[in-house]
Write a protein that binds this DNA or RNA. Structure first.
Length: 221
DNA sequence: CACCAGGCAAGTA
DNA sequence: TACTTGCATGGT
């Protein structure tokens, strides 16, 4: 029973992968760019984030020391298309300053730190919550951390795979406890959940008739 | 026109 | 602890 339950999350993964194929996340050329994207995409369409990152890239500002010294309101103007630009400029600054103070401005030292330490330090930053921290750890640092987001909660609770009231920590423990500890698997799985949510599990219009997960909750586990 | 998007923190009771 | 609200652009 417990063993089959463990395998059910892998069956869901297989269904999603068979339907959507590899998602090739995260869109970003460098760890710094991925980290910036993780902050900018908070409650924001990824297309808007791409515009903001392109602004920084075109200005030649995708560099840790340059961004660290960039005035707050200047940074805000560059990232304007990503929305919430004033608060996100501040959040990026907070994050850069933490890395400067704790790791001498070396992103690689943050990523080389223990998972426990790096996560605690990321979460200490004003504007970096659990999802943003875990996105950075998984997609920029390639650490085996499962990222939970509103899509994850919606898809899995609608299909009866987790209780509706599950919080972030509970969901993350479910995924990490039932899946092999594999950063590449976690990477692909999270991206596939986003894919299925966008197409079949929208907020208002769930089209679960054609959903590749149709009926998973009926399979006994 | 309304609604939504790969959240988070601060304020209130 | 458990809600509620502000933050904001751009696509559908």
């Amino acid at each position: 029973m417990q063993k089959e339950k463990k395998e059910s999350f892998l069956r869901v993964y297989d269904r999603l992968y068979d339907h959507f194929g590899p998602q090739k996340w995260w869109p970003g050329e460098t760890p710094l760019e991925v980290m910036i994207g993780a902050v900018l995409t908070q409650n924001t369409n990824w297309l808007n984030v791409e515009k903001a990152i392109l602004n920084l890239k075109d200005a030649g500002l995708l560099s840790f020391p340059l961004l660290l010294d960039l005035p707050l309101d200047t940074l805000a103007e560059y990232i304007r298309p990503s929305g919430y630009y004033n608060i996100k400029a501040k959040r990026l600054k907070n994050l850069l300053q933490m890395i400067e103070e704790q790791y001498g401005g070396e992103l690689e030292l943050l990523f080389a730190d223990s998972l426990e330490n790096s996560r605690i330090n990321l979460l200490s930053v004003r504007g970096v919550g659990q999802e943003t921290a875990d996105s950075i750890l998984l997609y920029a640092a390639s650490q085996p951390v499962f990222v939970i987001d509103t899509y994850t909660h919606r898809v899995f609770s609608r299909h009866g795979l987790v209780p509706e009231e599950s919080d972030y920590k509970t969901l993350q423990e479910e995924f990490q406890g039932r899946l092999p500890e594999d950063a590449l698997l976690f990477n692909e799985y999270h991206a596939l959940i986003v894919a299925v949510a966008k197409e079949f599990c929208k907020k208002k219009k769930p089209r679960c008739r054609e959903c590749p997960l149709q009926g998973v909750e009926e399979e006994r586990f």
